[in-house]
């Protein structure tokens, strides 16, 4: 009951979904759509676990006065303010309910979006520091990596003069020949790895996720 039933469920639903792929009939499409909905709905309910986990970890920090506990109050405040605004059916801010709530929208636009966009833009710096550190001709492989990256980065550099069109052509070649081959091989390999892993789950060989007893 605790272990056999879940394994049986994995097996049955796994094969059901494999077979479903080969059946074009509308009943099979209906089953597919319905099961997709299931997964989504389970995910929504599971979010409660996530929020509980976030709250508990933050609250523990505050309660036990762990280092940086003060910031955890900010997290909790942000979380609960957002929840409050989103569920504000009493319209404290004289605006619409739910996801149209004024505070809810503005918190998202002026807190989440700027910080996320800035986090993303840090990549400009990190890509530079990673290039500096890693692109050294230590070995043949590192040199290949370095040369390919340099050619592509130089492709539009007008200071190269007559070399520039050659760089341009060379970089198009690099992207369309070796890069294509590398990607294709990785995709085929990954495809086989995925199918193998999924089959192992269905056959019950990989069962770490189910826990013990």
């Amino acid at each position: 009951m605790k272990r056999q039933l879940p394994l049986a469920m994995v097996f049955i639903f796994g094969f059901l979904m494999i077979i479903q792929y080969f059946i074009p009939h509308e009943y099979s499409e209906w089953v597919n759509a319905f099961l997709m909905d299931w997964m989504m709905i389970i995910g929504v309910f599971a979010l409660a676990l996530g929020l509980w986990s976030l709250t508990r970890v933050s609250w523990d920090k505050v309660r036990q006065k762990k280092p940086n506990w003060g910031y955890s109050i900010v997290t909790l405040a942000g979380l609960f303010l957002m929840m409050f605004f989103g569920f504000d059916y009493f319209r404290h801010f004289s605006t619409a309910v739910g996801s149209d709530n004024y505070m809810y929208i503005h918190f998202y636009r002026h807190i989440v979006i700027p910080i996320q966009a800035t986090m993303f833009s840090l990549l400009a710096f990190f890509i530079a520091s990673a290039a500096y550190r890693a692109f050294r001709a230590r070995s043949l492989l590192a040199t290949l990596l370095l040369v390919a990256a340099l050619v592509i980065m130089l492709r539009f550099n007008p200071f190269l003069g007559p070399l520039q069109p050659i760089m341009e052509e060379f970089s198009v070649w690099l992207l369309n020949v070796p890069n294509l081959a590398a990607k294709r091989a990785i995709v085929i390999g990954v495809g086989l790895g995925m199918v193998a892993t999924a089959l192992k789950v269905i056959l019950g060989i990989e069962r770490a996720y189910l826990g013990k007893d």
């Binding site: 995910g43 996530g50 770490a208 826990g211 013990k212």
Partner: peptide, 20 residues
Amino acid sequence: CYDPIVMAIAQETVKTSYMN
């Protein structure tokens, strides 16, 4: 964790490993 279900499964996985 990034996803709550992933979190639930990862908890189960880690717990099992500690028990093992």
